[in-house]
Write a protein that binds this DNA or RNA. Sequence first.
DNA 1: TCCATATTTCGAGTATTCTCGAATTATGGA
DNA 2: TCCATAATTCGAGAATACTCGAAATATGGA
Lengths: 118, 118
Amino acid sequence: MEKQNALNALAALGQETRLDVFRLLVKAGQEGLPAGAISDALDVRPNTLSTHLGALSRSGLVHAERDGRSIHYRADLETMQALVTYLLQDCCGGNPDLCAPIASLAAASCGQGGSADC
Amino acid sequence: MEKQNALNALAALGQETRLDVFRLLVKAGQEGLPAGAISDALDVRPNTLSTHLGALSRSGLVHAERDGRSIHYRADLETMQALVTYLLQDCCGGNPDLCAPIASLAAASCGQGGSADC
DNA sequence: TCCATATTTCGAGTATTCTCGAATTATGGA
DNA sequence: TCCATAATTCGAGAATACTCGAAATATGGA
């Protein structure tokens, strides 16, 4: 991931409504949610939400797909993954010895679902 | 990590100068760097830098410590760790099956130093 | 075709952020 | 004490971001 992409993604997530939207979409899974459902769930006006969805979309964190009259948004976890990797590279590049605890914590946060293969 | 802390950290990193500062401090390691050295390295005026260092400091991503006439700033990797964990929790909570590739990529980014125990 | 629904785009108002020069505070040394 | 250095705080200007109501676009169904 390029620095500018990381910057866009971080700036996108550094705003409450957009972080809420992104987390909601992550929970919603692969199918995502139509804009209207997001608007209802978070109590944000449709036009304001549309602006935020545009920012998330430009940053690559979400993707839009029209489905009939509505437009489904879904979180792009690969971009999320790339962002985390970018942040960890920053960390581990200069301090490999400090990376282990971060990686193990990341793995631990995975285990919350109880899945052994995580 | 609380949502508001994550929000502050993300917003802090979502600005070019501050991301540059943070990365520079990560590379600088435990001792950190005095404000003047950061100012010189990144070609940012001292007062402007001070504002950004204040934002990073309030977000918990860096810490300041006076050393004689200068003030040393160092990156707080624990906050970084907590942020990554927070982001991964968002991810893994609803989709445990999607966490494994993210965790393994994180581990892979660790391995760049060649350290086997990472 | 005509209408209702879903979403976006437009334009404007307010708020926040970024940057800067000038002034201020804090420290160490002569 | 007096001065030089290091960094911060203050105040203001310009740019950017956020939110909203109103209008426009796109789709599906009667």
